[in-house]
Design a binder for these strands. Structure first.
Length: 423
DNA sequence: TCTGGGGTCCTAGGACCC
DNA sequence: TCTGGGGTCCTAGGACCC
């Protein structure tokens, strides 16, 4: 039987802030989304205060202050770098890792049974904490769904943060206690539909018929059904694959109605997205540009629209994408609206090899090489000297639409000027 | 006054074809 | 006037995830 573990960092963003600010230990901490809009990470103490995930900050600011909750704006450079450290350290323990998100990673424990999987997991947990300062929970199961479930139990229902599902009796006993939405892949909508059929618990789901599940949740539900039954399913594989689409967008700190600043903002997001594109060695054949007013302000005039552009030749050139993106935005832009967000989605991605086949026949070789070289140099400069050391004029210099980040911690690990100081 | 951002996969339905 | 059945491909939107 396959043995897969899910390693999940506890309250990741809050835990990272604590690594560089130990005073925050045992105190309530929250981290906010872009523009300090809503709560996206909570320490256990903050959860105990009843602060909810995705809660708009303005609604609970008095409550946060009253309870002396430490507040941080999200610092993705710091979190991304700390995530990388955790993942690299995991790779020290197992040859195959499958990074699922910034704070979660599946690892393959096949071949480690002789060490005792609980024991080995506890060692991993302890060492990751020792080496990075980040606490993790580890759940072990026969496939990803079961590993995820075990992890959930390790965090919610067991104290020490390591849990293994290893017998049918134990699994079945747990299923009788679990709510449907505690299963990875069953959200609120599916729960509602399942309950309409009289399926109330995970146990009901488990003992239902495959046909009935398919009727409500389609093929995804059937995959989950198989996974819970430890039968063949798509949740066994551990592999890292390239992104199939890359998006970048931000909502503005103040509303914007002129085309010029919207184009500048968009140019910045295209710069971010195309940099990610090159980082994974991909080219894009299609781009979507979108803009919208603030959907929460229902008393103002609403407008949202998008436009898709197909490229004859796959492209990874930021400047070309910006040029095309700006003129696309102009096509869907309407005057006299207060805009809240613009964004870009690159999709229909392909890799180098496929492009090379093309280039022999179609692309003017010299120019292509020259442009690729330019983009590589720019990426390298920005990586070494800091984001936007070199940027496109289209991105603008005074960015008045820039996001609000009033509670930002230092970029302790990625910026020479912001290292931790010790007195 | 103030409500995030980035992904994946599936499905229903339209367009088109014979 | 009456107007079938089946296939493919594409896309927008739904649902879910962190």
């Amino acid at each position: 039987m396959n043995k897969i573990a899910l390693v999940d960092c506890n309250n990741f963003y809050c835990s990272v802030e604590r690594v560089f600010n130990p005073k925050l230990e045992h105190k309530p901490v929250v981290v906010l989304s872009n523009n300090d809009g809503c709560i996206i990470s909570r320490s256990n103490e903050a959860k105990a205060l009843g602060i909810k995930m995705a809660e708009p900050v303005y609604k609970i600011m008095p409550y946060l202050k009253k309870n002396k909750v430490s507040i941080y704006s999200s610092n993705y450079q710091l979190y991304g770098d700390m995530s990388h450290r955790v993942m690299t350290n995991l790779n020290y323990f197992v040859p195959h890792i499958d990074i699922y998100s910034i704070d979660e990673c599946f690892i393959n424990l096949n071949g480690f049974e002789h060490m005792g999987l609980i024991n080995y997991s506890q060692t991993i947990k302890q060492k990751i904490y020792q080496w990075t300062g980040i606490p993790v929970a580890i759940g072990v199961g026969n496939n990803k769904v079961m590993a995820k479930l075990a992890n959930h139990i390790a965090k919610k229902h067991k104290g020490d943060g390591v849990f293994q599902l290893n017998s049918l009796e134990q699994e079945q006993k747990l299923m009788k206690q679990l709510e449907l939405t505690e299963i990875w892949g069953i959200g609120r909508r599916s729960e509602k539909k399942l309950k309409q059929l009289g399926l109330e618990s995970v146990w009901d789901f488990y003992t239902s018929s495959q046909m009935q599940i398919k009727q409500v949740m389609g093929i995804n539900g059937v995959q989950l059904y198989y996974a819970l039954h430890n039968q063949f399913n798509n949740h066994q594989e551990l592999e890292q694959s390239d992104k199939k689409s890359i998006a970048s967008s931000r909502s503005f700190s103040t509303l914007v109605s002129e085309l010029g600043p919207l184009q500048q903002a968009l140019s910045n997001y295209i710069m971010i997205a195309s940099k990610k594109l090159r980082k994974q060695g991909s080219y894009t054949s299609a781009m979507q540009i979108y803009l919208s007013t603030n959907p929460f302000q229902q008393n103002t005039r609403q407008y949202h629209n998008c436009i898709n552009i197909d490229f004859a030749m796959p492209c990874n050139d930021s400047f070309k994408l910006i040029r095309i993106g700006k003129s696309a935005l102009k096509k869907i832009y309407k005057r006299d609206y207060q805009y809240h967000k613009v964004g870009v989605l690159l999709y229909d991605l392909s890799d180098n090899k496929q492009i090379d086949l093309f280039s022999i026949d179609y692309l003017p070789g010299k120019e292509k090489i020259r442009k690729e070289k330019l983009m590589r140099v720019i990426d390298k400069i920005n990586q070494n000297m800091g984001t936007d050391t070199v940027f496109s004029g289209a991105q603008g210099i005074k960015k008045h639409w820039l996001e609000k980040r009033n509670y930002l911690s230092q970029r302790y690990t990625t910026n020479w000027n912001e290292l931790l100081q010790v007195n």
